[in-house]
Simulated scan of single mutants.
Amino acid sequence: MKKWFLLFICCCLLLIGCSNEKKVSTNGHTKISIEPYSLSDKEESLMMYAGVSQIEFFQFDGELGQKEDLEFKIEHYKKGKFKGELTSLSNMVESKYKNTLFSFAIDNNIDYKRTSLKLIMGTPSGIATTNFSNNMKGYSFESLVNERITLKKNKPVYLAAWYGTSENHLSSPSSKNGELPQGIQDVEETILYSVVWKAKDK
Rank of each mutant, 00 (worst) to 15 (best):
R148M: 07
E43G: 06
D201F: 12
V196E: 11
E68I: 05
S33Q: 04
A50N: 03
K78H: 07
N168V: 03
S125A: 11
E179I: 06
F8S: 00
L101P: 02
I184E: 06
V145S: 02
G164M: 15
K153W: 06
L39R: 00
L6H: 05
A160N: 12
P173D: 07
S25R: 08
L89R: 06
K23N: 08
I9A: 12
C12Y: 11
V187L: 07
G17M: 09
P156R: 04
E35H: 02
D201G: 05
Y37V: 06
K3H: 05
N134R: 13
L119S: 03
K118R: 15
K22S: 10
E56T: 00
S116Q: 11
G126T: 09
T26H: 05
P36K: 02
F132E: 11
F102E: 00
G51R: 06
K176F: 14
N154G: 00
H29C: 02
E56L: 07
L13A: 00
I149N: 00
K152W: 01
S90R: 00
L14V: 10
E75W: 03
K83H: 10
P181I: 14
L13E: 15
R114K: 14
I9P: 00
D201W: 10
E56Q: 12
N131M: 13
L144K: 02
S19Y: 10
F60H: 08
K137I: 11
S40P: 05
Q182L: 14
E167F: 11
C11L: 12
E94M: 14
L86M: 13
L144G: 04
T190V: 15
M136S: 08
L39G: 02
T190A: 14
F60P: 07
E63I: 08
L119N: 06
D41L: 14
S38E: 09
F58H: 10
G28S: 01
F132D: 07
S171N: 11
E189Q: 12
L89W: 13
A199G: 13
Q66W: 07
T190R: 09
M47Y: 04
K198P: 02
E35K: 12
